[in-house]
Design a protein around this nucleic acid. Structure first.
Lengths: 242, 242
DNA sequence: GTCTATAAAGAGATAGAC
DNA sequence: GTCTATCTCTTTATAGAC
């Protein structure tokens, strides 16, 4: 029923919009995501996107109903899938600290990999807050907050993390620390760090893990070894600890 | 010589542009800053600014040569003055940790106070990187980096801070932590933190100071008392420790 | 200093030929 | 699935009356 209603709404003669993923569609979306991330959604014109994929502006409307629809397609499903992966990691059979470290590793690497998406989520936060049709973005952010919350509650319960932690502030701080660090790394500042040297991603991740653990560990564990983690991602998309 | 050249360049008949600060000019700039911070520079039209100050769009060009000129006036001088104040605090006759804590307090409060400016600096980072006429923004960021660097070098030298600190990474992390925390606080999330309760600014600052000190202190000082700081700002703009 | 009026370019989107 | 052509609205900016 729902799908019938959607099909009726999405196009009079339904060209190829809304559903499948022809190569062309995916290429256009990837290019649009890149431009949105670089210049902002509202400052990117459909003409710029069209030029970049060597098509005429009008022809884009064969693939997508509106510019907004492109943004939805870039953000919604991919973000949902990412949160699913976060949850899988948080559910691994490891102690809370190891789960935290694994999640931090994964989140950072994942943000670099899907940089365009995360840059858009970060930069267009105002837009998403204003527009009700993007409410799902906030919902997904809340979901990933709660994933970290569970880890911290476990860690406090078993004495690894400080019992006086304000979880709301701490989780927010860690999330922002990570995404701003990824943003910094992606901007190339890590490489052209002219003042000293270049930084590899693993090094930046280790630095951030170290910072985070110093913030959350009980004082007696402040110098404990940092858990090593290797993640295995199966072809199915499932993750497991190595 | 330079000022003559600028006067010649800035306008044929030089209305009231470039120099003084009539009330009207300041009102327009304040409104523009608000809109730029909220919606982004490129997404804000001169018409929106004009509407907000109840004037016609064309009339704005009596006050400012271009939309870009407005942005320069909003960012340049104010940011320069802020960095001057950062430096004054870093030069106070206190031990390095007290100077760090004082600077963090001041920076956070100042970011909330001049929120529009900081939001613009944060959000339009891409724009400022692309456009050579905004190079001074990067220069000022570098200057405030070096102010923190001096404090950390002193703190490592006298044994208060970890000698294994990577200053480049740590200063970047702290700067981003603070500005993202201020952004979060300003967004109202601190008040509508529906899940638990509201947070006062002093509380958020204390939390961040605590996090920062845990990251930088030598392990033996991890639970040392946190220096209390009260800043006095004289009418002249000079600051001193109370 | 603000208005009216308008230029010139660019925006998002549509219709219909091929 | 892409093109040509075009509509309508909005953009930054200017000229000149008041």
């Amino acid at each position: 029923m729902a799908s019938t209603a959607i099909a009726e709404r999405s196009g009079r003669k339904a060209p190829s919009q809304g559903n499948g993923s022809s190569k062309r569609r995916q290429q256009i979306l990837a290019t649009a995501a890149e431009l949105f991330a670089e210049h902002g959604f509202e400052s990117t014109s459909v003409r710029q996107i069209a030029d970049a994929v060597e098509i005429l502006a009008g022809s884009l409307y064969h693939h997508f109903a509106t510019k907004d629809a492109m943004l939805h397609e870039i953000v919604r499903a991919p973000f949902e899938q990412i949160v699913v992966k976060y949850r899988a990691i948080a559910d691994l059979p490891l102690d809370p600290e190891a789960r935290l470290v694994t999640l931090v590793h994964f989140r950072f690497a994942e943000m670099i990999e899907n940089w365009h998406l995360h840059a858009i989520i970060l930069q267009e936060a105002n837009l998403f807050r204003r527009r009700p049709d993007f409410d799902y973005v906030q919902d997904l952010k809340t979901a990933s907050f709660e994933i970290l919350q569970q880890i911290f509650e476990d860690g406090i319960a078993n004495g690894m993390f400080r019992p006086d932690l304000d979880l709301y502030l701490m989780i927010g701080a860690i999330s922002r620390l990570l995404s701003s660090a990824a943003s910094w790394f992606r901007s190339g500042a890590a490489i052209h760090a002219s003042r000293t040297r270049a930084y590899a991603m693993a090094e930046v991740i280790s630095f951030n893990v170290d910072c985070i653990l110093r913030m959350v560990r009980v004082p007696s564990r402040i110098e404990a070894a940092i858990p090593m983690v290797t993640l295995q991602t199966r072809p199915s998309g499932q993750v497991s600890a190595a």
